[in-house]
Nucleic acid binder design. Structure first.
Lengths: 342, 342
DNA sequence: CTGAAAGCGCTAACAC
DNA sequence: GTGTTAGCGCTTTCAG
């Protein structure tokens, strides 16, 4: 089956292919009559524009690349939803790449996007990302780059995050207000700013309520459901007591809950647990998991809008790094809701 | 910053750009010395191949488009993982499109992929997909098309599914063997073959164990967590008893469990529940949800391999629709495991 | 309002 | 082993 091009349409109508091109692109200098005729024959011949050719010539692909650690994590797939919504409305296609928390894959994703000449890249870095040369390459080529949630500290580009400090603060404050006195915080071993901010919020909340900060209650590790379990096991073995846990993200918090239940320790009666990110499973488990909502859809939409702005101004982000900070929302559920039980 | 092309490299080295092109593509007729020199200057000049130009000329994009209802559903994101694994290994990039269970979006996804001249499309249809003209357009253009899981009945193209009939059979059989006598089945109102197969498996399992098939126990609806809840509410209102529920997929099963718990009906003691698809949350909830595993990773890998096969043979799928059917795996968890309690 | 012509950056047949 | 040449199907000046 021969591919039909604008030349075929032109021949049908005895006009030139450039007129056809203009008609299809709704160029103002083409008469309605011609446009109509062109559109009709295009339809009849089952014409489909060749985006490749169009992109080669125009230099724009109308594709935006999004790099996320994993789409399994509902936080990321929700943000992607937000991005897609705005992008679709504005005639862009969104290309997704999963780095699987591997720097090697992340680099490959960036490389692929650069070669595919995407019009912009929106990313959230992996936990492995220690140097940012690959990302610098993006800005060097004047390709708009926007980070959301996890961003590297060294790079001055536009980003959308929530106020992670405040998130850490209100999560800890909530536990304190529920009467929990000795609160663990599980954080990441990596140097990712958002996790450090959550930790800072935790510390300041304790201080604010005159609770001594105990370094032994701050656990660093490779966060995951299993790590949450490990922490609970370790503390039992070492015979250290506690009555509250604030984990840097929900899967770790879930691991904590599971291991506590394994030990027949009641949540929230004996130990209160709160996570971070408002993962989809949190409202399905028993007890339901308290968490901090990150306004995922808004986050994605704002990231997309940030890109559109840069695009419109024809600016690259290096000049005007705009940082949008959203409000964290405390999502109180059963796992930390002791007061209701009394 | 000027983009560097193969011409720039050629000028640096005083050779022609076609030699450069061949060197970069590792063409056998180029001397190692030249290749080395080319690669080095390419590196030095920070050259990146323009895939757009390459695709326009060669007619291949090395991109495969994947259309799924939603990446929030871990079944789909797992299959995508499998697809990506095989595709990455074979030098393909995977483009993802979410239809959000909307035929309109699905059509737009197909259109976008066609215009982008992807080398193939792997899809799972929406619950709304009633006619398949859009998909027919794909095969008409000789673009390889492969379905996984949800496929339309009318179209004869390659596909990967599990044996849904058997899945329905063993799920029901399991409930029967656990001693449940009056088993509901929640199925879809839409005409999607895999769901009809699961229903057929349910019916045959009952017959096999000489349990009368009661039409009133087969509920059709728009499956979702909420629909699961609704079903439980309805049965209570109508005062109809039952002691087992087999839902067509896990979210619906979860809704059933939640509403049962709301009514203080114990699972699995009083009512046994089993879902389908082995969603990620199933092992996190209490009680853990029994389900049928669909070998998601394998399913994705097989779909990808099917594409590679078609590609290699230069065939379109219409001639040789190859249907791969995987084995469903019964995943027994607490929600249906009554025998352990005795 | 429409046509003519150039060229985006590469691949691939054909030379030598 | 390397050079020459002709496009892929569009967009986009420049003419008229």
């Amino acid at each position: 089956m021969k591919r039909v091009t604008i030349l075929d349409i032109a021949n049908e109508l005895n006009i030139t292919f450039s007129t056809v091109a203009r008609a299809l692109n709704d160029h103002p200098a083409i008469s309605e009559a011609t446009k109509k005729a062109v559109r009709e024959t295009a339809e009849r011949l089952n014409y489909r524009q060749n985006k490749i050719a169009s992109s080669l010539r125009s230099g724009r692909t109308n594709i935006i690349g999004v790099i996320v650690p994993s789409l399994h994590v509902s936080f990321f797939s929700s943000v992607v939803h937000g991005i897609e919504r705005v992008m679709n409305e504005n005639g862009y296609t969104t290309l997704l790449y999963q780095s699987n928390e591997s720097k090697k894959h992340e680099d490959k994703g960036i490389e692929t996007f650069l070669q595919s000449r995407v019009d912009g890249i929106i990313a959230s870095i992996t936990t492995e990302t220690d140097d940012v040369t690959a990302y610098k390459e993006i800005t060097k080529r004047n390709v708009p780059l926007i980070f959301f949630d996890r961003k590297p500290e060294e790079l001055s580009v536009s980003s959308v995050t929530i106020d992670d400090y405040k998130g850490g603060f209100i999560a800890t404050q909530h536990l304190i207000q529920q009467g929990y006195k000795k609160i663990l915080h599980i954080t990441a071993e990596q140097n990712i700013s958002i996790f450090k901010e959550r930790l800072r919020g935790y510390i300041d909340a304790l201080r604010h309520y005159n609770i001594p900060v105990d370094e032994d209650l701050i656990i660093k590790g490779k966060f995951s459901l299993d790590f949450g379990k490990t922490v609970v096991k370790d503390f039992r073995e070492r015979g250290i007591g506690y009555d509250g846990v604030f984990a840097l993200e929900d899967y770790t918090a879930m691991g904590v809950m599971q291991q506590l239940m394994e030990y027949k320790i009641r949540v929230p009666e004996e130990v209160g647990v709160i996570g971070f990110a408002n993962e989809a499973f949190g409202s399905l488990v028993t007890p339901q998991l308290s968490t901090i909502d990150q306004q995922t859809i808004t986050m994605g939409e704002e990231a997309a809008k940030l890109f559109l702005e840069l695009q419109k101004q024809g600016k690259t982000n290096t000049e005007t790094a705009k940082k949008i900070v959203l409000e964290p929302i405390l999502q109180i559920r059963a796992s930390s809701h002791r007061s209701l039980l009394r």
